[in-house]
């Protein structure tokens, strides 16, 4: 049994869909998992901060219109 977390993670990734990984490895060489995971992690983080900023912006904008409507009524 392989106790090295990183190698078992790589094995696990490879076994999900071997043909795809064969193509990826043919392109990226032996560091395929490293390169892909770096891109994956970074892009996820970027998307998270963008989506969070947009969602908060929308929510606060809606709140402000609600509050201003209440103010005008009173």
């Amino acid at each position: 049994m392989n106790l090295d977390f990183w190698s078992s993670f790589k094995d696990f990734i490879y076994e999900i869909y071997p043909p795809f990984w064969d193509a990826v490895v043919a392109f990226l060489g032996k560091y395929a998992v490293e390169v892909l995971s770096a891109y994956f992690a970074s892009i996820i983080l970027l998307v998270v901060i963008v989506v969070m900023s947009i969602r908060r912006s929308r929510r606060v904008r809606a709140q402000l219109t609600a509050v201003e409507a209440r103010k005008d009524k009173s």
Binding site: Y31, E34, A38, A41, S42, L45, L46, V48, I49
Partner: peptide, 16 residues
Amino acid sequence: VMTLIALITGAIWGQP
């Protein structure tokens, strides 16, 4: 978030 990206990609790069 930028700092985190730099650290994570750096770690993944440093490993090999």
